[in-house]
Computed example of a mutant assay.
Amino acid sequence: MSHEFRPGEVIYYPYLWAWQQQRGETEGRKQRPVCVVVAIRSAGDGNTHLVLLAITTQPPQAERIALEIPDIECRRAGIGDLNQSWIVVDEYNYDIVEHSWYIEPHQEILGRFSKSFVMKIGATFAKARTQSGRVKRFD
């Protein structure tokens, strides 16, 4: 039985940025912390669909939509050793756990954001979703 992913959990994942995909790259360049913002188990096939948002220490460019992660939330998420961090909400990686090349059945969870911060992430993601880029990570 694999881990039941929940929104707000933070895991390591080889995130593929949309600009990298547009250049023809197919693999993320490094493992980075990502936040599970959506985790849905399909009733039809039993697969777990994940929407993953990148966490970065690079300040966002002016045209990007990102939330600064407060220090307390970094500690809760298990990334307290990072300096100032942001969660990018205007693009995401979409993966299916049971078909993923990147997620292990018993994937280690670094930590989890508080419910209130997850709600803020979700609301900001929902607003940005119309202009967000999806990067599909499975075949």
Rank of each mutant, 00 (worst) to 15 (best):
M1V: 14
S2T: 12
S2V: 13
H3K: 13
E4S: 14
F5M: 09
F5H: 03
R6D: 03
P7I: 06
V10S: 05
I11D: 06
P14N: 07
Y15K: 01
A18G: 06
A18T: 06
A18Y: 09
W19T: 11
Q20N: 05
Q21N: 02
Q22E: 14
R23Q: 13
G24H: 04
G24N: 01
E25A: 10
G28N: 09
Q31T: 11
R32N: 08
P33W: 07
P33G: 09
V34L: 02
V36P: 10
V38C: 02
A39F: 10
A39M: 08
R41I: 03
S42Y: 03
D45H: 14
N47F: 15
N47C: 15
H49R: 15
H49M: 13
L50R: 11
V51E: 05
A54G: 11
I55C: 01
T57G: 11
Q58E: 10
P59R: 03
P59G: 02
P60R: 00
Q61K: 15
Q61I: 03
E63Q: 13
L67A: 14
E68N: 06
I69C: 11
I69Q: 08
I69A: 13
D71M: 01
D71P: 06
C74N: 15
C74T: 14
R75V: 13
R75H: 11
A77D: 05
G78H: 09
G78T: 04
G80V: 07
D81P: 00
N83H: 13
Q84R: 14
Q84A: 10
Q84E: 04
S85N: 06
S85V: 02
I87V: 15
V89M: 09
V89Q: 08
D90G: 11
Y92T: 01
Y92L: 01
Y92M: 00
Y94S: 04
Y94E: 04
D95G: 05
V97A: 14
V97C: 13
E98C: 06
H99A: 11
S100R: 09
S100N: 03
W101A: 11
Y102T: 08
Y102N: 12
E104Y: 12
P105F: 05
P105R: 06
P105V: 10
H106R: 04
H106L: 06
Q107F: 09
E108Y: 08
E108P: 02
L110K: 15
G111C: 08
G111T: 14
F113D: 08
F113V: 03
F113R: 10
S114M: 09
S114Q: 08
K115I: 04
F117G: 08
F117V: 12
F117Y: 14
F117R: 01
V118M: 13
V118A: 13
V118W: 07
K120C: 05
I121F: 12
G122V: 04
T124N: 04
F125Q: 03
F125M: 01
F125I: 00
A126G: 00
K127Q: 10
K127Y: 06
A128R: 10
R129A: 07
T130W: 10
Q131R: 15
Q131P: 00
S132F: 06
S132P: 07
S132C: 00
G133Y: 08
R134S: 09
R134D: 00
R134W: 02
V135H: 04
V135N: 05
V135S: 02
D139K: 10
